[in-house]
Amino acid sequence: MGARSWIRAGGRTVTGPILEVRGVVKTFGGIHAVDGCSLSVRPRTITGLIGPNGAGKSTLFNVIAGLYAPDAGEIVFDGRRLDGTPAHEIVRRGLVKTFQIPREFRNMTVLENLMVVGPPATGERIRDLVFGPYDRRQDEDAIRKAERVLETVGLRSLRDEYARNLSGGQKKLLELARALMADPKLLLLDEPVAGVNPTLTQHLLGVVEGLRDEGLTFFLIEHDMDVVMKRCEWIVVMHQGRTLAEGVPEAIKANPAVIDSYLGG
């Protein structure tokens, strides 16, 4: 077993897109937050999602992750329909979303935060505890795995600290680490570096690129154009709930519609 064998995504060549969104609509009252959005994400890439405030980016992420049910359209992940699947099932299929504002489990330690997620635990149902194959040693496996993930993101020294005591940037890293515990194929990151100092930003993006090289796919919302243009291979622009443009960074930078609605002169 290799050093990073806990990441499941590698070892398989996927030619088509790993995620495909087709005509998704989500309305709140009369407001069309996502209004017939279509896009696709290719595997083993870092794909950026940009657009002005209120373009529906976060809503789209929530729809993909199953936290909101779409009003219309379909979502295909890894060759199978995703819409209509409960959020907790979606995670098991390998798609995990992090939150824009870190939502750490405040009164749990960093290690505990990670252990909540993986490995897909027996012993999480009363039935398993009483009759099923629950074994306390699986906790030890979870701890070892969590320690490897903490090593990857550079939070090892804060293992037993309460999550509430972490700084804003460290909380972002914790979000990423927690998502990695679920052995994802595709990670949706909602503004992963907003409010994070430049050093930590570089560290975090380094982690993301390292994981991409190992076979994970990232789809991220970001407002920092330096980050997006330098680190993303593919960019999707959303405007008023729809896809405005898709392409490589250079093409997006030159696209007049994008300049008009978002990038500015």
Binding site: A87, F105, V116, A121, D128
Partner: peptide, 21 residues
């Protein structure tokens, strides 16, 4: 137990717990 840990996660932040499976 893992069950108790999951309950704690739900107590701390239900939506985050759901988003984590």
């Amino acid at each position: 137990s893992p069950w108790g840990r999951a309950l704690k996660a739900v107590r701390e932040d239900e939506e985050a717990a759901t988003a984590l499976g």
